[in-house]
């Protein structure tokens, strides 16, 4: 069981997430992609914990889950207000501000 494979996998998941945030137009999907990035980090943390035989990485994974939950609350609140105002959750339509 080579732990490098898990790091590579977490890298792939992270890239999918990052690209999702940058490319997808729906705020909810962009937001789900952020969650994907956080979970990729969790996989890397747990892999690190396995490689080094200490518990720091596993504790970190728990903290990240809690933070992700808090982020969901804030994120959905913001998206919901925008949706109620405009009847759309597209990030392209939120374009009143530009230089």
């Amino acid at each position: 069981m080579n732990p490098n494979a898990y790091l590579v996998l977490s890298g792939i998941i992270f890239s999918i997430g990052a690209l999702g945030v940058l490319l997808r137009r729906n705020a909810i999907v962009a937001f789900m992609s952020v969650e994907l990035m956080l979970n990729a980090a969790n996989l890397a943390f747990v892999t690190g914990a396995r490689v080094w035989g200490n518990l720091d990485g596993q504790t970190a994974a728990f903290f990240v889950m809690v933070v992700a939950a808090a982020e969901v609350v804030i994120g959905l609140a913001i998206i919901l207000t925008i949706f109620r105002t405009r009847n759309s959750a597209s990030v392209d339509e939120a374009s009143l501000l530009r230089w």
Binding site: F14, L38, G48, A60, I79
Partner: peptide, 29 residues
């Protein structure tokens, strides 16, 4: 304008902290 600012700040801020977190995870690994 304000709601739009909140949405932009949230999405890009969450992206930034996701990147920071993955960097931390790799540093730990």
């Amino acid at each position: 304008l304000s709601q739009e600012a909140a949405l932009k700040y949230f999405i890009l801020g969450a992206l930034a902290s996701g990147i920071l977190l993955f960097g931390s995870a790799l540093t730990y690994a």
